[in-house]
Computed example of a mutant assay.
Amino acid sequence: MGSNILHVEFLNFVRNTLLLFSKDTNQSVFNLFLIVLHKFGHLFNGDIQWLKDHVDTVEDIANFFGQIIKKLPNVIHHCPDEAYVLFIQFMKNGIQLHEQGALKSISTFISNFIEYTKLNQRAADLLQQNGFEFVQILLKCIGETSPHHLIDSLSLPLFTLSKSYLQWTTHWVQQCLNDPNFPTSSAKRQHREALLKILTSERTRYSNFKDHINTFSLACRETIPTYETKD
Rank of each mutant, 00 (worst) to 15 (best):
M1T: 03
G2S: 13
L6F: 13
E9W: 08
F10N: 14
L11P: 04
N12V: 01
N12F: 06
V14G: 10
R15A: 08
L20C: 06
K23G: 01
D24A: 02
Q27F: 09
N31Y: 08
L32V: 01
F33Q: 03
L34M: 08
I35W: 11
I35L: 11
K39C: 08
F40M: 05
G41M: 00
G41Y: 05
F44Q: 03
N45H: 11
N45K: 03
L51I: 07
H54M: 01
V55G: 04
V58W: 12
E59K: 06
N63H: 11
N63D: 15
N63I: 01
G66H: 10
I69H: 08
K71T: 13
K71R: 08
K71N: 14
L72D: 13
L72H: 09
P73F: 07
P73A: 05
V75H: 14
H78C: 02
C79L: 05
E82H: 07
A83I: 00
A83M: 04
L86F: 09
F87V: 00
I88P: 01
K92S: 12
G94C: 03
G94P: 07
G94V: 04
G101Y: 11
A102K: 05
A102R: 02
L103N: 06
K104E: 15
E115I: 00
L119E: 13
R122Y: 08
A123F: 10
D125L: 01
L126E: 10
N130M: 00
F132M: 08
E133N: 09
Q136F: 15
L139R: 02
C141H: 00
C141D: 13
T145P: 06
S146Y: 07
S146G: 03
P147Q: 10
H149E: 13
H149D: 11
D152I: 03
S153Q: 15
S153G: 10
S155Y: 15
P157G: 08
L158C: 03
F159D: 04
F159M: 02
L161Q: 02
S162P: 00
K163E: 07
S164Y: 11
L166M: 06
Q167P: 00
T169C: 14
T169S: 12
T169K: 06
T170M: 14
H171P: 01
H171R: 14
V173C: 13
L177I: 05
N178Y: 11
N178M: 05
N178L: 08
D179W: 09
P183K: 03
S186C: 15
S186E: 15
A187Q: 11
R189K: 10
H191A: 12
H191P: 02
A194Y: 05
L196D: 09
K197C: 06
L199Y: 15
T200V: 09
T200I: 08
T200G: 15
T200A: 12
S201A: 13
R203Q: 12
S207T: 10
S207K: 14
N208T: 11
D211E: 11
H212I: 00
N214M: 04
R221E: 05
T223I: 12
T226I: 01
E228L: 10
